[in-house]
Design a protein around this nucleic acid. Structure first.
Lengths: 213, 213
DNA sequence: CGGCATCCGTGACGATACTG
DNA sequence: CAGTATCGTCACGGATGCCG
């Protein structure tokens, strides 16, 4: 039979929000975007950090996102030849959508269910709009028990990445509960530092700003 | 058989965005929120403004939203006794999510497909972050060929409503294409006024601000 | 008449197995 | 490693019927 390219189900509404949901409203799509916002990823790593998604659905979503110009498939040069998926600028433009979702969903994190999976970089999104803006672009490395991630603040490449930063201006060592309260906005960085819930290291101006105010 | 309350499918991730998508990630849910952001609505009106949704899915979504504290079912006092659905503060908190989605999806509106349904108040969301903030809370009534809606700007009850406003400070008469360009941000209000693409009426300070700048 | 519940066909989803 | 193949289940869309 011909591989009849079944037209994706659309809301068929002349409305900006409906158009956006046509593109990213499918199950798992925005969570794939959340993963790729942390940098290029291989298929297997995506599958590992999205527990519950089946292999065929993940493949289908990546294909859809590629067809819509949200992500590209790129083959890394040897050595370490592997294919990675990376967001296009259009895909990166979804960052405000995910931060808005994260801000709204943050109160639901008070309940931590035993079935919940956890990854360190999932804490990055709520922090992006809660940390004070630095005067110069700064990189913050965040160390949790669950892993390490980093934030890029104040520059034009606002965003986050999985794993340690190359040259962090500030390093924060804290537990995930403190990190959650920071992301929820019920706790300030300075409060957490003076309360001894954050071990802050770094000598630059942004480190001083986080300590001071 | 027992009415085994099937547990809603969850991502089971300790992540704020995933929690938000657990609540509002189902098909149609955010579009129901978009409708209710315009004010309380009856079931039949919701069904009419969400072409394509089946009756049982709409009923199920409303039930879910009620169970999750996003909306309430309220019976209007006679005369005109009818049951309406209305967002709770928690539900209204989704406004930033929908504006972010609308802003991202606005470029896709350049293509107007013949199968697309249109409602006037669907143009409200992109306008909310594009119109300049007034110095005092102001109400803008927008008149399109497709219908009328109004915007509440500058106050604490930022939002929009379907139908005409009670006491608008400004009235804008324009066509939907101009409205789309305003929402996309490629056209300013003052430009559109001087180009004769908007008929602006109103004598208050915000009307002057829209004309002037 | 508004507010659903029921039935049915189709497609999307989730789990597992398997392959280049 | 990076998917494809297969299959059972469930959610969705459309139509119709019920009931206050």
């Amino acid at each position: 039979m011909p591989p009849r390219q079944q037209r994706r189900r659309s809301y068929d509404q002349y409305c900006a929000s409906a158009r956006a949901l046509d593109a990213v409203g499918d199950r798992w799509t925005l969570l794939v975007v959340r993963e790729l916002l942390g940098g290029p990823r291989r298929y297997t790593d995506l599958h590992a950090d999205l527990p519950g998604v089946s292999t065929d659905v993940l493949a289908a979503r990546l294909k859809d996102m590629e067809a819509q110009g949200l992500a590209i498939r790129r083959r890394l040069p040897p050595p370490g030849a592997a294919t990675v998926y990376e967001l296009t600028p259009r895909g990166v433009g979804l960052l405000p959508v995910l931060t808005a979702l994260a801000e709204w969903g943050a109160p639901d994190l008070t309940e931590r269910r035993p079935t919940d999976a956890v990854r360190a970089h999932w804490f990055a999104l709520p922090l992006l709009n809660r940390l004070p803006a630095p005067k110069v672009p700064s990189v913050v490395e965040v160390v949790l028990d669950e892993g390490v991630f980093h934030l890029r603040l104040g520059g034009e490449r606002l965003g986050y990445g999985d794993g340690p930063a190359e040259e962090p201006d500030v390093r924060l060592v804290l537990d995930s509960d403190t990190c959650r309260e920071l992301g929820e906005g019920v706790l300030g960085v300075d409060e957490a530092v003076t309360a001894g819930r954050i071990t802050l290291s770094g000598e630059g101006p942004y480190a001083a700003a986080l300590r001071g105010s």
